[in-house]
């Protein structure tokens, strides 16, 4: 099972679903990371975490530990 954490810089991925529950999951979804959305991985912060991605036309920063909750579609 591949998650957003595993995605490489420069890659564009598609979301299968957001796992988990509670505040963090809701926040991730509120910010527009929902089923079938495309995410472009822009860069990793200079100290190695968090990750900057482009989603729905804007820039979003997500910690790697939270990125694990975002499950990606395979083979796309």
């Amino acid at each position: 099972m591949r998650t957003l954490r595993d995605a490489r810089v420069g890659e564009t991925v598609k979301v299968e679903k957001v796992a988990g529950e509670g505040a963090i999951k809701r926040r991730i979804m509120d910010m527009g990371i929902t089923k079938n959305v495309e995410i472009y991985i822009r860069k990793i912060a200079p100290l190695g975490d968090p990750v900057e991605v482009t989603v729905r036309g804007y820039e979003l920063s997500v910690r790697k530990s939270d990125a694990e909750m975002v499950i990606l579609k395979e083979g796309e």
Partner: peptide
């Protein structure tokens, strides 16, 4: 739980 750090990086 800590506040989620899912933050917009505004233009």
């Amino acid at each position: 739980d800590p506040a989620p750090f899912v933050m917009e990086l505004p233009a």
